[in-house]
Amino acid sequence: MNTLSLKDRFRLSRFFAGEKPSDEAILLNQRRIFILPSKRGLSFVVLILLLLLIAFVYNNNLAYFLTFLLASVFFIGILHSYKALAGLLIRKGQCKPVFAGERAVFQIHIDNPTPVPRPSLEIDLYDKTQTTLEPYEKKTARLYAPTEHRGHQTCGTITLSSGYPLGLFRAWSPLRFNLSVLVYPKPWPQEIPFPETGGGSSDQGKTEKGTDDFYGLQEYQRGDSIKRIHWKAYAKGQGLFSKQYSGEQGDELWLHYEASAGYGNEERLSRLCRWVLDAEKAGLRYGLKLPGQKIGLGIGPAHLTQCLEALALF
């Protein structure tokens, strides 16, 4: 990170795009912070020139002094705006997968390990977020970014800037982290029936199999067979429970890529995504079959994640 060639150091893109993406914490120092006068700063220069003219025309020394004082304030403003950012430690945080179309949240941890308060910080990714940091304070900024396509979406250049103290200068630091969010396909907007599973006599399986090993009780859900209700418990007034047997497989559902024939690739994935979510919600055991990829039957958050990841990265 520290071995930048001279050419690299003067590349203009460094001004706005920052350096190579980093995994480590970034310490804001003279190599990372850029300062330029803002529009207000430029008008302040005009003000100084006007005052200088007044002082000159009237040969008024106090007016001269006021002019010089403001000019010095302007000049010292550079140091102060540097101070507004210098020493901050920025670390990348985590980001949770989202569905395409949702907004991704990138977390950035900003640490102020110095005794200097930072009363005005602006973090800019897609929207601007403003925050302040007290001495030795740490904060986590949540930056939102729109997502459009499934797959890995990298976090762009985050710009941390400050106009403190006088707003005459803007100090900014472009930050790039190895930070990406996994974007799942957008679930198909309408509810669609589950695809027919080949030779699917799943209903039969449910009744015939798995009645031997008692396994536990589950709170009664509508649709459970009356035969399975644990009447004893009901008699004791403990509520309705249905008995579960260990061999029970529940509903099995195989979701095929081919099941949505006639749709384009993205639409198919979108439909599959919807099915996966619905199956999980319905408590079905489901598996996923994509060309060249197969995820076995399963249920639960881990399984769901696995399936969605496969869809996102297909």
């Binding site: 670390r91 990348k92 945080g93 985590q94 941890h109 740490k138 986590t140 930070l179």
Partner: peptide, 11 residues
């Protein structure tokens, strides 16, 4: 404790 909350490898 803070470190574990910020470190990206820890969910």
């Amino acid at each position: 404790i803070t470190f574990t909350r910020e470190f990206p490898d820890y969910p």
